[in-house]
Write a protein that binds this DNA or RNA. Structure first.
Length: 552
RNA sequence: GCGCUUGUAGCUCAGUGGAUAGAGCGACGGCCUCCGGAGCCGUAGGUCAGGAGUUCGACUCUCCUCAAGCGCGCCA
């Protein structure tokens, strides 16, 4: 398969053929990497898994498998423990791994898992009521990286931001801004600040802008007209700032989808009618209710349209997801939500089932809180109270690369301590520099190599380089890259790649320190290995949206 | 009360049924005549929250208990 390593494929096929010779029709068994050095370079536990179906002792099966194993890369086979098959690889394997990785250039690791199917990733979707903070940054980094990884693994990806531009929150935003407008003009007693209003300083800034643009005319205007103007102005202004922050954070969207669009085109009501027609909604106490199927996990029926005729947020969300799956034909939909919305998943899945789609095609990635730490202390944040550190401030301080790397280092559903002091450090205690440095170091070597009038040759790598442990381990890391990509893509988990990149960088640094690369007996081959490592590091960084600098 | 998530080294966390549980930071001790020392090598550090079960085999799956966070609204 394109993107995989040919040498690795041959090795795994040898295992599969050996298993088939036992009378098993098909198997997807592949070699694993044993933890313990004494257990060889690759191991398989297939014999133990097959013991039941074959009704033989695991160790006997293991012996048969090892006798059947035929592969040009295998130097020695042992059976061990309860029924492990341990394989020792020859040097040709590592040489071929590097040659194949280099030959595939930018496509190395680009395994096709998606078959060009349409998938939508919806993320950030922060309400335009205030600036993005570090938590939104985590969602942005995650959604964007997942989208990059899916693209790399053969999915047809669309990135979308859902703009909650109608409803109560925007009303509150407008009223908050209008209240500040009156306040600045010394008429604070004539329009009171809403109870759950937005208290951040940015609201004052927007009010001042309106004063500069429109003067004092809203002091005399009817409240409804003023609020309409203020909410529209403030929301657009804030949305503009959000877009600027996202662009700076290297996050691009294909579409900003407006909630207002759903209402203006009557799509919410038509979705509700469809549910009613199909028996998934009923009226009671003057409201319209969604009939939850208990099989999907939600425990009670939910209101769709209130007795006063106003649809709930859930109703818009049903219409929105109907639009994704049915109107726009996405075969798979991935939403990135804050973990505090987890109770909502069952409800939306139930709705997706009710519209005749498979809820398994809908994934929600939950992101836990980001705990910002400065000077060893937690910085508390609350959007409404106006106490928060904005994403933009974090980027000013730590830079885009450190911010993205840190936000993607952990799996999304565990909370992160974002240590501002560590992120700012330019040293080996900061993992992002460690990884970037490996890349810059490779580039430095390549520059030096070319300065000496040399270049990467077609000549095969001299196999005896791989009698050195550091070279073998680096080549082995490179051999596993396609597997890491598969894992990151199928579990929608960029942190797999940050962890892998750090290990790969470590393997390269060790290789570098174990002996000279240029001006060595096998320098042509050693440069090739370095070059392959540099390219894989660069690809990892690209997939998490971090720069791979040539100089630092 | 019910549900979701989390609990692994001093700290922050990896580990989607395989062998003796790993990494980074922090601590301690070494390595520059040399391609980039933003680096490398080594040492110490564990009741995988606790208990039971399934399995040839459990950090991983099931159940119970404990602890933390978050949900359970005709809010968004």
């Amino acid at each position: 398969m394109k993107g995989e390593n040919n040498a690795v494929i041959k090795l795994n096929e040898a295992l599969q053929n050996a298993i088939k010779l036992l009378g098993i029709e098909s198997t997807d068994e592949v070699f694993e990497r044993p933890r313990n050095e004494g257990h060889g370079d690759r191991a398989s536990s297939a014999a133990m898994k097959l013991a039941k179906t074959l009704r033989q002792k695991p160790l006997d099966i293991a012996k048969k498998i090892s006798e059947n194993l035929q592969c040009e890369y295998i130097e020695k086979v042992e059976t061990a423990g309860a029924g492990f098959v341990n394989v020792f690889l020859n040097k040709k394997f590592y040489a071929d791994v590097i040659e194949d990785a280099l030959k595939q250039e930018n496509n190395y690791g680009s395994v096709n898992l998606g078959n060009n199917k349409k998938v939508q990733v919806e993320f950030v979707s922060a309400n335009p009521t205030g600036p993005l903070h570090i938590g939104h940054g985590r969602g942005a980094a995650l959604g964007d990286s997942v989208a990059r990884i899916l693209e790399f693994t053969g999915w047809n990806v669309q990135r979308e931001y859902y703009v909650n531009d109608s409803g109560l929150q925007i009303e509150t935003l407008g009223r908050s801004t209008l209240a500040r407008y009156f306040e600045i003009l010394g008429q604070g007693n004539k329009f009171s600040f809403p109870e759950n209003g937005y208290k951040g300083d940015y609201i004052y800034d927007i009010a001042k802008e309106i004063i500069n643009l429109e003067g004092e005319k809203f002091l005399e205007m009817p409240e409804n007209e003023s609020v309409n103007y203020f909410k529209k102005y403030a929301a657009e202004k804030i949305m503009g700032e959000i877009k600027n922050d996202l662009e700076r954070f290297r996050v691009k969207f294909d579409k900003f989808f407006s909630e207002g669009f759903l209402h203006e085109n009557n799509l919410v009501m038509s979705a509700m009618n469809e549910l009613k027609t199909n028996g998934f909604a009923y009226e009671q106490d003057g409201a319209l209710w969604f009939k939850t199927e208990d099989t999907i996990g939600d425990d009670k029926d939910r209101v769709l349209i209130r007795a006063n005729g106003v649809p709930t947020y859930f109703a818009s969300d049903i219409a929105y997801h109907r639009n994704k799956f049915i109107t726009r034909g996405f075969e798979r939909v991935i939403d990135v939500w804050g973990a505090d919305h987890h109770g909502y998943i069952a409800r939306v899945k139930a709705a997706i089932k009710a519209m005749g789609k498979n809820p398994d095609d809908f994934d929600v990635l939950l992101i836990q809180l980001v705990n910002l730490i400065r000077d060893g202390k937690t910085v508390n944040m609350s959007t409404r109270a106006g106490e928060f550190v904005t994403l933009s401030e974090v980027l000013d301080e730590a830079g885009v690369d450190a911010a993205r790397f840190f936000l993607l280092m952990r799996k999304s559903d565990s909370k992160i301590d974002f240590d501002m002091d560590l992120a700012k450090k330019q040293g080996n205690e900061n993992p992002v520099y460690y990884v970037q440095y490996a890349h810059a170091r490779v580039c430095g070597i390549m520059r030096e190599y070319e300065k000496q009038g040399e270049k990467i040759s077609d000549e095969k790598i001299s196999e005896n380089i791989f009698s050195e442990k550091e070279a073998r381990e680096l080549a082995d890391m490179i051999a596993f890259f396609p597997d890491e990509i598969k894992s990151a893509s199928s579990t929608l988990a960029p942190h797999v790649l940050t962890a892998y990149a750090a290990s790969l960088a470590g393997a390269f640094h060790s290789f570098y320190n174990s002996g000279r690369i240029i001006d060595a007996p096998d320098s042509a081959g050693r440069v090739k290995i370095s070059c392959a490592a540099g390219k894989v590091v660069a690809k990892c960084l690209e997939l998490i949206g971090v720069n791979a600098p040539e100089r630092m």
